[in-house]
Design a protein around this nucleic acid. Structure first.
Lengths: 211, 211
DNA sequence: CCATTGAATGAAAGTGACTGTCACATGGTC
DNA sequence: GACCATGTGACAGTCACTTTCATTCAATGG
């Protein structure tokens, strides 16, 4: 889910990171922080890679070593593995809509708790900047592929079947629209409620009547 | 629907076009033809605007006057108005799935009859070239906006409501996946059958069981 | 503690999409 | 045929992104 923020807390397990690794993490974070700040100050288009590099105190080449495109600096997310784990952990007899409800709620709670402003900035840029929106949709498509793998596992279906693929992408399309709606309405609503309502629509159809 | 081809036949009504207008149409077509040919020969990335301009015998600036981006040369479509008209013409008591089935079938029949190779090339590029896919999704989103307007008219619903927006984008996401699937499987299937199956999934859920 | 090695960085030059400006030419109109 | 509006080409510029290569510095083995 491209509009959520990456977790900042490192799981305390795993061998302690070497100096090299720690530096990389700091650089990565410096680039993102610089980018967010500059965008708040000047807007997305007016912010160049060179400015970002200057403020993050790295060279432009380094920026591109960390992020393949300018849009990626804004939207990169490391949530997919978390969500996939959550997805697999849900009981097998739960309906797909309830599964997604839980997974999305967990992810959103974390994201909003960690960096609420960044989460909002991202969705806003998704509305305002076509290139960012495009990159978000790409990311949505790849999350869709993960989703269909998980759903295939759960249901024993063929993950490559048209039916499952359509289903997964259709769900992702609906969720993408939630993000757009949330930002367009000035983040007034609780996005978790919006997600619930969206999943209701996708599960039961539009409320009140078929045609 | 971004993966269809634009109609070449001009409706015989309307006042006869002046020389200027006719030239514009010819230039536009020359640019697109040159682009398709070059892409077939060399691939998308290897094809530059300068080459396209050369082959179409116009200047690079002119290419950009006709198409805002390189991707647009490939995917530009003039189908939305046609589809909207068709959409509004369908009887009011028809289910939305049947409406879309008819509209999509009409559009696909026309598109495949007019320029079958171009239709296939487009969808293939949608799979192979991320930038093209991104532009297709953008176009899909704007078709989604039109779709929700039409659905709102038909049902008397608020076109701005979250529910309708989610519904429309969810449908578009599913249809986008059909295009991807069709191209990824080498255009072996009849795309109209694929659309039917996709609409079945979106109307009734995945076949055989809920969870 | 030092030497070696491999990864990460920076500097620099290049490519190509896209923008903006301006002079020129060409179709439409009287 | 003269006037006007619109479309076009030439040109210069910006910026994202790539590639190459020399340098630096953390990691590792002795």
């Amino acid at each position: 889910m491209t509009f959520m923020t990456a977790p900042r807390t490192t799981p305390a397990d795993r061998p302690p990171l070497g100096l090299r690794e720690r530096k990389k993490i700091k650089t990565r974070q410096a680039i993102r922080t610089a980018t967010y700040a500059l965008i708040e100050e000047q807007g997305y288009d007016a912010t160049t890679i060179e400015q970002i590099a200057d403020r993050a105190e790295v060279s432009p080449s380094t920026v591109f070593r960390y992020f393949p495109t300018k849009e990626d600096i804004v939207i990169t997310d490391e949530w997919d593995p978390v969500m996939m784990a959550e997805l697999r952990a849900r009981p097998r007899d739960e309906s797909w809509a309830d599964v997604l409800r839980h997974v999305m709620r967990t992810a959103l709670d974390l994201s909003l708790a960690e960096e609420p402003e960044v989460t909002r900035l991202r969705t806003r840029l998704g509305v305002e900047v076509p290139a960012v929106r495009a990159r978000m949709m790409e990311s949505m498509a790849s999350t869709g592929r993960l989703l269909r793998e998980a759903l295939a596992e759960r249901s024993g279906r063929d993950p490559g079947s048209l039916e499952l693929r359509v289903f997964a992408m259709s769900v992702m399309g609906g969720l993408m629209e939630v993000s757009q709606y949330w930002a367009e309405t000035g983040h007034r609503d609780d996005i978790r409620d919006l997600v619930d309502r969206a999943l209701d629509v996708m599960e039961h159809g539009l409320p009140g009547g078929k045609p």
